[in-house]
Design a protein around this nucleic acid. Structure first.
Length: 368
DNA sequence: GTATGCTTTCGGC
DNA sequence: TTACGGCCGAAAGCATAC
């Protein structure tokens, strides 16, 4: 059965955190704005979360150390602010609820992105879709004060790639008949699932661009990458993507990570931090009525190299103590394997099982 | 050989 | 001069199962 033609939109809120800081403090406009995560170790210990476009001109972008950002912006009237996640979440929720009204279906992809299926709302017509987008933009700008960039295409794959073309406050339309010309000159790594290793592997086969991949023999792709991946690569390269736009389910894992006051190898010091993190994680999964089957830890060493360990429990659990015990075991084992000092630690739970399902299993058990 | 599941690392935001 | 977050899901790399 052929899949019905769709019109899919990706909305990407422009330099979101920094834009919101400008929004609530208009005196920031015209200045480089850097929103940073401060670890609390020293005055400038931390990293850049987001910066506005003016700051980006000084090569200050997401992920770089804050001290480096400061150095690059020396002599300017740059403003540095700490992240205010609750505020950003609130505005994001607000925008998403507006966007929902303009779509048949909306799928959030992080705090600042959403896919919208607008096939019906736009009467299956790209001109209407563009008009719809202009209306959305005007409404969000008027009611919230925020701008965003948009990609419009026949599926999520094309919408996402298109949204990156014109930023900020841009709109890029790629209709079905333009897909081939749009995709074929691009590097294969624009495709989801094509990472460094796969790029190298494809390069050996003489595949550099999406166009190369699109005309490569499917049978051969299947031989090299396996049935699932081979077919997927072939379809994606040809602009074919049938992934539906649907509201995301529960998170697959919940975790916390944090920087220690001082580097250490002391298990007690580590577990003190971990216990704080377990408290926060517990609040989150218990209100959602989830049981976990996986407990994992992660550690970042003094030299900033990272390690993680995890274990799957024999049976699901929902209490805090099981996390503590498993995390302690994992750290004990890890400290035995490495002699580096630890800088940051984290803990997470995952492989969730919903309460209802457990009850069903229990009922099934009693019936037999 | 291909699929599946588990674990660790990678990388985007 | 030294310097450096906190998430998450995807990818990768195995081991085992079919």
């Amino acid at each position: 059965m052929p899949t019905q033609a769709r019109i899919v939109i990706l909305v990407d809120l422009d330099y979101f955190f920094a834009q919101l800081e400008e929004l609530r403090n208009p005196s920031l406009e015209g200045k480089p704005v850097v929103v940073g995560m401060y670890s609390g170790r020293t005055e400038t210990s931390g990293a850049v979360s987001t910066s506005n476009y003016l700051a980006r001109k000084y090569n200050v972008k997401s992920g770089i150390p804050l001290f480096l950002a400061q150095k690059r912006l020396e002599g300017t009237d740059a403003v540095f602010l700490p992240v205010d996640y609750d505020y950003y979440q609130q505005v994001s929720d607000n925008i998403m609820s507006i966007l929902r009204k303009y779509s048949d279906n909306l799928e959030q992809a992080g705090i600042d992105e959403a896919y919208l299926d607008v096939t019906k709302k736009a009467c299956n017509n790209y001109k209407d879709a563009e008009a719809l987008v202009q209306e959305m933009k005007a409404t969000v700008k008027r009611e919230v004060g925020v701008t965003f960039s948009v990609g419009i295409g026949p599926n999520k794959l094309i919408a996402k790639i298109a949204s990156d073309i014109h930023k900020p406050d841009g709109v890029t339309v790629v209709g079905p008949e333009q897909v081939e010309g749009f995709l074929s000159p691009m590097s294969v790594d624009v495709l989801l699932g094509v990472g460094k290793k796969t790029v190298a592997k494809m390069s050996e086969l003489g595949i550099k661009t999406v166009g190369d991949l699109a005309k490569y023999d499917v049978q051969r792709l299947v031989e090299v990458f396996g049935k699932v991946l081979g077919v997927y690569f072939h379809n994606a390269a040809n602009g074919v993507d049938n992934e539906p736009v649907e509201e995301a389910g529960e998170a697959e894992s919940i975790g916390r990570m944090g920087t220690l006051k001082e580097n250490t190898r002391d298990l007690a010091v580590i577990m003190e931090k971990i216990d704080q993190q377990i408290e926060e994680i517990y609040k989150e999964y218990s209100t959602k009525n989830l049981s976990y089957r996986l407990v994992g830890i992660s550690a970042v060493m003094t030299n900033l190299s990272g390690k993680s360990r995890s274990k799957t429990l024999e049976k699901p659990a929902k209490d805090k103590e099981t996390i503590h015990k498993a995390a302690q075991e994992l750290f004990e084992k890890y400290l035995g394997e490495s002699d580096l000092e630890i800088r940051r630690v984290g803990v997470r739970v995952g492989s969730f099982i919903k309460e209802e399902r457990q009850q069903q299993q229990l009922i099934k058990f009693f019936k037999t």
